[in-house]
Design a protein around this nucleic acid. Structure first.
Lengths: 125, 125
DNA sequence: GTACTAGGTATCATTTTGTATACTATGTTT
DNA sequence: AAACATAGTATACAAAATGATACCTAGTAC
């Protein structure tokens, strides 16, 4: 029996409040500028977007291409190596879908947080 | 990737400083008492062990069997449903192993962690 | 009647993550 | 010469996760 566990290594790449959604965007759209990512993920701050992208870059999952021009232009994309994460993400996603079902069976339907929104005008009335 | 992203759902089960190692222990050893888990994971506090186990129990990954006796005896094990996580853990572990190699190529030797393996009896249950 | 056992809770301190907001750089446009 | 554009940094703060330590329970052995 091997006593080596690298689940945590894979986890390391994915953990962080915004990493899955960043990866989702880049996998879906190919190349994106910093500002496009910001638009696609409205609630993220520049600081978080930057830090999460840098971590992904460190792990060679995301490539950062700088155009030397003013105003600046920086494009992000999944590296060729990063594409190799697809099976991991796919497997996790598939299991996750099934698991949401399973939780529903166990505990009943749970409302999606984001689907519930109160219009500003109504708040406090 | 699909347009519904449940990677985060899968992450939810795995995230937490101690969850991977707890799962590793239970997958490897089958049934374990609370105190056995503590012995196997020396640095974990009772509080963390309890809270992580409760979360895994909520997700129906871990089963908690209480023996009504004094002093107390409580046994933990992977549920039948939990066994279904094996492909996820296996995929993450495999990719993680390769990724450690990749990081070594990029930055030189750095790390040592544990790896993940499922007890034979549990496979295909 | 005291100590021991196992599997926890309760409380508070510390560390890690994430948020909010302001600031920077610099060539181009007005 | 002021404003604009983009991709960030810097600083301060708040919230969440984790850690340290003490305490609880109730039978049983001494």
């Amino acid at each position: 029996m091997s006593d080596e566990c690298r689940v945590e290594t894979a986890l390391e790449i994915l953990v962080g409040k915004w990493k899955p959604v960043i990866l989702f965007q880049l996998f879906s759209n190919g190349t994106m500028r910093f500002s496009e990512l910001q638009k696609a993920i409205p609630d993220i701050t520049k600081k978080m977007l930057t830090s999460q992208l840098r971590e992904l870059e460190y792990h060679d999952i995301v490539h950062r291409k700088i155009y030397q021009q003013i105003p600046p232009k920086v494009e992000y994309s999944i590296t060729e190596y990063g594409i190799g994460m697809t099976p991991v993400l796919q497997t996790m996603n598939d299991w996750g879908m099934a698991h949401v079902e399973h939780l529903n069976e166990l505990y009943g339907e749970v409302r999606e947080v984001e689907s519930f929104e109160v219009k500003d005008e109504l708040v406090g009335k």
